[in-house]
Amino acid sequence: MTSTSTVMTTGDPGHSVAEHNPTAGLAHDSRGGISNPILGMILFICSEIMFFSGLFAAYFSVRASAVQWPPIVKGGTDQASIDAAAALTEHFNLHAEPWFGAILTVILVISSVTCQLGIWAIRRDDRTGFIRAFGVTLVLGIVFLIGQAYDYSTLGFGISDTPFGTTFYTLTGFHGAHVFGGAIMLSVVLYRGLAGQFSSKHHDAVEATSLYWHFVDVVWIALFSTLYIL
């Protein structure tokens, strides 16, 4: 640091103020390390991890205080409500057929791979490869969202149906919202990429977006493991 300080400021102590160094206040980004946008994104992801930690903590807390998980719903006295309860109990058993969730997982993991391929492409200045890879990533993200909406329509239970429904829709819903946010970021990056704004030297936004996308992917893997398998 001492060597840097002698380079960047002026002269010996006691006289430095008298001299003028217009770059002194502006020379901060030149010291290596990760750039501000990427650091900002990493910090933001830290806070997002804590957000999902809160939701997961709630899930495990509610689950731990339940007698049976997935819950067995008890109906009333009449046959209709007993049937409805049995159907709900049946629907809660996601573990029996986690296949659709598994397909969604595969889609999102592949999108993470294509996202990384795009990063490697732009790092070696391959703009076409980058745009192609990010385009595929965006499409896969949208496919995931459509798939999740379809999944919701077939589940047969709602957010107010026992803590199982509440936690399921809160956790997957907020993940879906994050995928949606990621898709918007991918669209912006893609648009800027098509406008030729990125190169191997200048693509912080691309790196930051890919970090976010990987994070969203990891959250889904944790969600899938917890909600559909565990």
Binding site: C46, G54, I159, T162, P163, T166
Partner: peptide
Amino acid sequence: LMATPVFTSALIMLFIDRNYGGHFFDPSTG
């Protein structure tokens, strides 16, 4: 950075409890 998001998640859970019939904080329904 590490604590506020947890509060945000708590607020959202309360919002879901109040407005969408959620059961996060209601012992009578699990």
